[in-house]
Write a protein that binds this DNA or RNA. Structure first.
Lengths: 258, 258
DNA sequence: TTCGATTTGTTCGTATGTATT
DNA sequence: TAATACATACGAACAAATCGA
C-alpha cells in the first residue's frame, strides 16, 4: 500500500494508548504542539472541531473541552460560523488583554508610540535573570515613549533576546503597522500568551523625569514585565515607568461576564 | 395528595418557557439568586448536579455548564466526591485569589494584622463615589497595619457602609479568627467575588511614613480598591499604601494551568 | 478494612440552533 | 439557498474521589 509520505503524522489516539491523564489534556497538548510548530498559520482557521476529532480519534466533545481551555487562556479565539483562530495581537486584543493603564474615569485608549533609541547590546544582570539568559548573551534594547491624550505618560525600556528575533532591526520596528506583540507574531511566529508584571513605586531619575515632563525624583510607577510564549519561554523584558498623576494601573479580579 | 408546604418554589423550566438566551445562563442566574438569598449555607454543599438538574428540569450537562462558569468566576468550588461549595474566604483562598503583594522572590505570605483605629463616621467624597453612597451616609472606618516578614509593609484605611454591616464594631473585628472577607461572609452573609484595584505611585505623608518606617515623602504604592458582591454591590473601599522597597505587587496575566 | 452509596470528572454520541459564507 | 462551523442541549456510561456503615 502507498505510504503517506508528506502528510502530518497520524495523531490518532488508540483506545488502549497510555495517556497519563484525561484525554482532553492530551488533545490540548497536541494542539499546542501544532501551534508552536507553526503548523497552523495565524491568518486562517485551525481545523474544525469535527476534523480534529477525526484526526485524534476522539469525540467532538473532547475536542471542544480542549479547545475551550485554550480559548479561556486566550491562546485561541472562536468565531461561530467561521472557525477557530490563533489569537491575533491586533490593537483591540492588546488593549483588552494586556493593557492596564486607564485615565481617571477608567477608560482605555490606544497609546501613540515614539521610538527613542535602538541598540544592540548584551544582557545585563536584570534582563538576564528575567529572560533566563546567560549574562552576556546578545539582546536588542530599545526605548519607547507612549503618549496618552497627547501627553507622554509611559516610558518603556525593552529588551528582547537576539536568539528569538534574529534579524530584528530599527527599520523593522519603525516600519511595523501593528502592535509590538503583533510584530513578534507576524514576523517571528512568536505569540505572547502570558505576562508577569512586578509593580513598585519608584522615584523618577533625570531621564525619566525629563521624558515624562515631571519633577526630578517624582513618584512614578515602575513595572518590570516579562512576556512568555506558549511553552513558557520568556521572550521580552520591559521596564516601564508610568506617570500616575492622571492615569492609573487598573486591575480587575474575578471578572464579570453577565 | 399532600401539598409540599415548605419546599422551595418549583423552579422547573417548562419546555416552552420564554427564556431569553441559552438555558444554562438561566440556570446560572437562578443559582446565583439562591446564593444571594442565602438559601445555601457556606458550610454545606449546594445540591448535587443531579438534584439541580431535576429541580430545574434540565439535563445534568446544562447544570454542569452553569456551575462551571460560577467555578471559573471563583464563586463556587467543586470538590470531587464531596460536592460543590460556596467559595469560603479562608486564608489560603484569600492569598491565592485576592492578595498580590509578594517578596523579592515572588513568594506570598499571610500578613500579620494590627488594628490601629476604629470609628463611626460618614462617607467622604472618595468613599461615597467608590461605594456608590450618598455623601453623608454612615460608614465604619478602620485602619489596619499589615506586617510581612516581621516588618510593617502595608497600611490600610478601610471603609464599609453601615447599611451592609449593621452591627459592625471594634470588638467584632478584633475577635474574629479569620480573614476580613471571611468575617463579612460568616457574620453578614456577604461574599466578595470581585475586586477593582486602582494602582498609583504616591508620596508617603507623615502618618504613612511613620507607620511604614520610611522617609517622609518616600515613594509608595497607593492602591484604591473596591470590593463587590455577586450582584455588583460595592461593599468595601480600601485605601492601601505599600512600601515596595522589598516587596512588589505581582500581577500574572493569562494564567498557566499545565 | 472493606464495601457501597454519593458526587463530581471524563468521554461518548446525537440532535438541533445560530452565525457565516 | 446550501454548506460549514461553532453553540447549546440531551442522555448515557464509566471512572475517581469521598465518606460512612
Amino acid at each position: 500500500m502507498a505510504a503517506e509520505l508528506t502528510l502530518p503524522a497520524d495523531d490518532a489516539l488508540q483506545p488502549g494508548a497510555l495517556v497519563a491523564g484525561p484525554l482532553y489534556v492530551e488533545v490540548k497538548k497536541r494542539v499546542m504542539r501544532s501551534l508552536m510548530d507553526g503548523e497552523w498559520l495565524q491568518s486562517s482557521p485551525i481545523p474544525s472541531e469535527a476534523q480534529l476529532a477525526q484526526r485524534y480519534a476522539v469525540s467532538v466533545g473532547t475536542v471542544r473541552k480542549a479547545i475551550g481551555e485554550l480559548v479561556a487562556e486566550r491562546v485561541l479565539v472562536r468565531q461561530p460560523g467561521r472557525g477557530t483562530f490563533v489569537a491575533s495581537h491586533n490593537r483591540d486584543y492588546m488593549l483588552e488583554a494586556f493593557f492596564h493603564i486607564v485615565d481617571e474615569r477608567g477608560h482605555k485608549e490606544f497609546p501613540a508610540s515614539r521610538l527613542l533609541t535602538f541598540r544592540h547590546g548584551r544582557a545585563d544582570e536584570l534582563s538576564a535573570r528575567f529572560l533566563r539568559l546567560a549574562k552576556d548573551r546578545r539582546v536588542f534594547q530599545f526605548e519607547n515613549l507612549l503618549h496618552l491624550q497627547g501627553r507622554p505618560v509611559i516610558f518603556d525600556r525593552i529588551r528582547v533576546p537576539q536568539a528569538v528575533f534574529p534579524d530584528f532591526d530599527e527599520g523593522v520596528f519603525r516600519q511595523r503597522d501593528m502592535t509590538i506583540f503583533g510584530l513578534y507574531q507576524a514576523r517571528y511566529g512568536v505569540t505572547v500568551t502570558r505576562l508577569e508584571e512586578w509593580i513598585r513605586a519608584a522615584n523618577a531619575d533625570d531621564r525619566v523625569a525629563r521624558l515624562l515632563v515631571i519633577k526630578d525624583d517624582a513618584a512614578v510607577l515602575r513595572i518590570d514585565r516579562v512576556a512568555y510564549t506558549f511553552d513558557g519561554t520568556p521572550v521580552e523584558f520591559r521596564e516601564r515607568f508610568v506617570d500616575t498623576r492622571s492615569h492609573a494601573y487598573l486591575n480587575a479580579l474575578g471578572m464579570k461576564k453577565s
